[in-house]
Simulated scan of single mutants.
Amino acid sequence: MEIQFTGKTALVTGAGQGIGRAIAKRLFEHGAKVYALSKTSENLRKLQEEAPGILTVIVDLEDWEATQKAVKDLGHIDLLVNNAGVAILESFLDIKSESFDKVFNVNLKAVVNVSQTVVKQMIADKTGGSIVNVSSQASQAALRDHAIYCSTKSALDMLSKVMALELGQHKIRVNCVNPTVVLTEMGKLGWSDPLKSGPMLAGIPLGRFAEVEEIVDAVVFLLSDRASMIHGTTLPVDGGFLAC
């Protein structure tokens, strides 16, 4: 199945590393003009070395006004991937106010801010568009010490459904991708201990974690016209974890 985004402009948040970085590179390879957004300039510099031609946006998504201005200055966007996310692991009884605010600010509030800004331009230009929000299997399965993170991803799933309900009339599709543990560099490090990874793997019928490119494949498909009738869905990429 050949997918091309020639003539399309894409914005990927959290594109400095991991899944976001791989999504930005793939979209660029498929012909899109790509804006890669991150708050870490060094990560974006390395991305540009790997894929000269990708354009970068340096902004902290927790800063509402600065983010809004940075995104608005980009002009028209056809494809939006809200990938940026953070996780602060604390048991329920140890949740701190600052942890709650930071995780919700990045994982949910920033999605509202970036999407509003992009969508208003899409509507003004009457072009339609496609948005993919990167959620998690943790939106539907409770994980110990992930109370805040799980809550943000559950909220993101429902936000995406409401966006789909309201934006469909403007030919703007909105979908979620919900991965299991993904073997990014951070993922490999964080799940290298068999005592931690063992119980999670035991719950995945395919018996393994996801590779980065498997998440990218799902995102790119949902962004593309090949998914033109897929709207308002949450797509698990979890080896069957949520089926059990």
Rank of each mutant, 00 (worst) to 15 (best):
G232R: 06
D225E: 15
G207Y: 07
P194L: 03
P179I: 06
K196Y: 01
S197Q: 02
L206G: 04
M200Q: 13
T234C: 13
T234V: 13
D225N: 14
E213H: 15
G232A: 10
R208K: 10
E214R: 02
R208C: 02
E211S: 10
G203R: 12
S228H: 08
S192L: 05
P194F: 04
F221N: 03
P179W: 04
R226E: 09
K196R: 06
G232T: 08
M186N: 08
I204H: 00
A218Q: 11
S197H: 00
D217H: 11
A218C: 13
D225K: 11
K188A: 07
I204G: 03
M229D: 00
F221A: 01
I230S: 04
E211C: 05
M186G: 09
V181T: 07
F221L: 09
L183P: 01
S224N: 10
K196L: 12
M229V: 07
F221Q: 04
L206A: 05
D217A: 15
K188W: 07
A202M: 12
A210I: 14
E214Y: 01
S192Y: 06
V216A: 06
F221W: 07
G203Y: 07
E214I: 02
A202D: 07
T184F: 14
M186F: 08
L235D: 01
P205V: 08
S224M: 13
E213L: 12
L223C: 07
A210H: 13
V219F: 05
M186Y: 03
L206P: 02
L183Q: 06
G187E: 06
V216Y: 10
E213A: 13
M229K: 00
D217Q: 14
